[in-house]
Amino acid sequence: MRAYLLSRLAQTALVVFLSLSAVFAMVRLGGDPVLLFMPMDIQAKDVNEIRQRLGFNDPLPVQYARFVGGALRGDFGESLRYRRDALGLVLERLPATLLLAASAVLLTLVVAVPLGVVTAVRRNTLVDHAGTLATVIGQAVPGFWLGLMLIYVFSVQLRWLPTGGMGSLAHLVMPSVVLAAFFSARIARLTRSAMLEALGEDYVLTARAKGLTEPRVVAKHTLRNSAIPIVTLAGLEIGQLLGGAVITETIFAWPGLGRLTVQALLNRDFPVVLAAVFVISATYTVINLLVDVLYGWLDPRVRLR
């Protein structure tokens, strides 16, 4: 187990390092960042002086070496726009995004898994068709559109929920629903197909033959066996969930990592972009590691190596 974790950690470090190098190369090929954080009446000589001071005039390998040296010490430099430690700026936003993602996952588990189970057990009934239709639509409706509609109905018309920002539990409702919508649809469909597969297995037939009641069969035998693919996919989809958070956070003015990243990209605030890439890929790999550990618990046959 320890050897496994160590090798996974080494791999993770490599993955994160490669992502950062790739993004570093890409941002340096992009436009001039100096223009975007300086006032418009700046004179050409001042622009050049600032480029010089920030090291943007140095040869690329030198800049890269400096970046790697800093990154190894956890120093991604200072945000060009906000004049603050870039990593600190990013880490400050991480809890908000994790809260949003966690509540979306929770909502998904509460809604999607039961939906998937019910549609599988009641296959080809009206419930199944309605449920399937709902998931297919859930997958097709763009999140940003859903978000705007919810704000219009629940904030402007009914005034039940705040339009955006972070604060009370009420602020969390609409962003989580929007973020969970697409995710739930995927998970519900996956649960359904995994359940269908499991329901056809021999041991289920045996269990039935033993005279176990159907709810017991479903709960004890099939659901646990279906859990593995569900957890796998959920783990893989966490990355997409973080991606979805970009849009949700922008619409609901949620002070999270996704919104910061989009802004940093638009502002060419490269230290922040790199710090965000670091935090996002690290978060994602850690979550996947946890998913792997969860396997062992779900299925004792899986030995981590």
Binding site: I151, Y152, S155, V156, P162, T163, G165, F252, A253
Partner: peptide
Amino acid sequence: FRFIPEFSTRMAALLSGE
């Protein structure tokens, strides 16, 4: 001062009295 990047969300906040 609240920071609301989207115009439509800002407008919703005004109309809902936030």
